[in-house]
Design a protein around this nucleic acid. Sequence first.
DNA 1: GAGGGTTGAATTGTTCAACACTTGACTTCT
DNA 2: AGAAGTCAAGTGTTGAACAATTCAACCCTC
Lengths: 222, 222
Amino acid sequence: MEHSQIHRVSVADQVASVLRQRILNGELRPGTPLQEVPLSASLGVSRNTMREATRILSLEGLLKRSVHRGVAVSQLSLKDVQEIYQLRRMLEIPAILAAKSNHTDVLPELQNALEGYEGAVRRRDWVRAVEFDLQFHSLLIRFLHNRRLESFYQRVIGELRMGMVLVDRRHDDPGGLVPAHRKIWQLLAAGKLKQCATVLARHLDDSELRLSKVMTEISKKR
Amino acid sequence: MEHSQIHRVSVADQVASVLRQRILNGELRPGTPLQEVPLSASLGVSRNTMREATRILSLEGLLKRSVHRGVAVSQLSLKDVQEIYQLRRMLEIPAILAAKSNHTDVLPELQNALEGYEGAVRRRDWVRAVEFDLQFHSLLIRFLHNRRLESFYQRVIGELRMGMVLVDRRHDDPGGLVPAHRKIWQLLAAGKLKQCATVLARHLDDSELRLSKVMTEISKKR
DNA sequence: GAGGGTTGAATTGTTCAACACTTGACTTCT
DNA sequence: AGAAGTCAAGTGTTGAACAATTCAACCCTC
């Protein structure tokens, strides 16, 4: 009997997954307060289990706890976005440069994410598009072969995704970043790593600029 | 009344802090199983609160949960050490190089950590020595001005500290790394960043080598 | 005696109900 | 209005209960 095949997850973890999905889909928007009793009742779990779930998500950065004031979906500030893009530059560019020869396993997955991205943009399914976009970048980190880094990056990207899904509806052209991704993939497959890193750096700058522009617009409206 | 002065921490957070300290001190050694009922009773909290605390620490990587098998203090493998040192190189070296001119606030703290380190070594207080050693390196990360990175690094360093405290008693010369630290500080204060980065890189290689050597020796004995 | 199933105590996972404490809004008083 | 008091709603924490799972001891068969 396989050991890794068996699904043994606690209820609290499952609840956390459900909530995580809802947040990342934009179904639960930043700032939304989550009350323990109604929420746990609606999911059919006890209050204690719900508390464990919110504990998980708050440590992941998706929820924010204030003592005696409950939890709410985290809200990304412009400073957060700057911080996250600084991280992305620090991690993704070295990852590209480390892609020497051991990238045979990751390349197909990258292609898959790329095609999923293109397809989602064609269908105007922005939530999926963001998901594939960020999955593509997460895969880049795999070149560094560092589990801790991968899970950290995943968390950071999760925070970013929350913000991106939120603004993408009024985003001028959410598919405008597709060509950059394709270019990155091509250069990567061709082994032109330095050139690829340059394109990636420009792409990240572009992406950050777009996001912060939309975010400032939104914050002005309030 | 100041807003930031008031600590309002939940009991669960306090319990997590106590356990964290005990783990990092080496009082709770890797592999030690933690039973909910006796432990919660000894700290005078309920089982539910204790569960929240262990949830926190397991997400920090200090405890490992197995469903229906309880939690135990995490055990560092050689592969973990490699991974962590890869991270340290990836983060500390760029941090040094980013220390341009905005380092006036961090330098005194670095000096403080350095002197604490030297003092602890003189007193043969290895637990403290490890603490100051790693605090010195944590402070380097501050040059990058990225809160997320700082907290991530803190977590990683915590895992490493757990392993270091454990082996330091049979460590040939735990104070042997003091001169490297002093050199790093001097070069940093002098603004010779490139040279400093070189010394740091060598220091990290040295440190990793020492730790993995001791760890393999220990694992052979079992 | 080795291997394989069975039983049962111990431990964790989850629920439930209760109470203390905090918060924020509402009311009241001046 | 503004300050002080009041109160309901929500979170923090507890204790007890039950269900699910593990682990070891035991028994049986061959």
